[in-house]
């Protein structure tokens, strides 16, 4: 007696099954997946806002340190353990809520902490400064002013002083606005590195031009 034929499972029969009888999750499975999505969102929020994460930046104000060439935007790694100015030292790069533009954040380097005296150089170049060159040591209509950083504030400045809107424009930033500290550069991938603390961070390009 020959053994009975077993039907060969074909791909078409599986397709027909999938289209005719879709797999519908029952209420337990649905409830569980919704719960997992909510829990994942909550833990993501807590991780991003209290521990750290990865974010992209825009602008040329930190150019020797964070290269910027339009798209794609550079990615940085930030640590939120330094929020509200905890353990921030002079030379760290911080991400803070913008004091005058609500809803925006900015990334600059801390130049002075409460009690420090900062020599403030007036902001951008004017039309009369176009003929001046940096080699002459006279690159803009600078006005020097000594300023003492008030209590609970910090003085921030971009590394690219010619093209930076920083404390010269919006004044000292309250340390309570500091959200995080930039820790490393992730993208562009070839220039990935951890940021060192200190002001000699630029790659020798603008080292002599950083005015303190």
């Amino acid at each position: 007696m020959p053994p009975p034929r077993t039907p060969i499972p074909s791909l078409f029969s599986r397709l027909r099954t999938a289209t005719s009888q879709p797999h519908r999750p029952d209420s337990t499975t649905l409830h569980r997946s919704v719960k997992h999505v909510i829990a994942g969102g909550i833990f993501t929020h807590i991780f991003i806002s209290y521990i750290g994460g990865v974010s992209f930046t825009h602008g040329i104000s930190m150019v020797p340190t964070i290269p910027y060439s339009g798209q794609p935007a550079p990615f940085i790694i930030y640590s939120n353990l330094h929020r509200r100015g905890r353990n921030i030292q002079v030379g760290d790069m911080v991400i803070f809520k913008h004091p005058t533009r609500s809803g925006q954040t900015a990334l600059k380097r801390v130049i002075g902490l409460p009690g420090d005296y900062v020599s403030v150089v007036s902001g951008a170049r004017d039309e009369g400064d176009l003929g001046k060159k940096a080699e002459d040591g006279d690159w803009a209509n600078v006005k020097n002013q000594a300023f003492r950083v008030p209590e609970g504030h910090c003085w921030v400045a971009g590394d690219n002083l010619d093209w930076s809107r920083d404390s010269r424009v919006h004044g000292p930033v309250p340390l309570a606005l500091v959200q995080s500290k930039a820790v490393g550069l992730l993208f562009p991938w070839r220039e990935r590195r951890w940021f060192k603390n200190g002001l000699g961070d630029s790659n020798g390009v603008g080292k002599e031009q950083v005015i303190l």
Binding site: R84, G85, P150, E151, G152, H153, P174, L175, A176
Partner: peptide, 8 residues
């Protein structure tokens, strides 16, 4: 609000 002169 967070005090401007005392960050914490």
């Amino acid at each position: 609000f967070w005090k401007p002169h005392k960050p914490n």
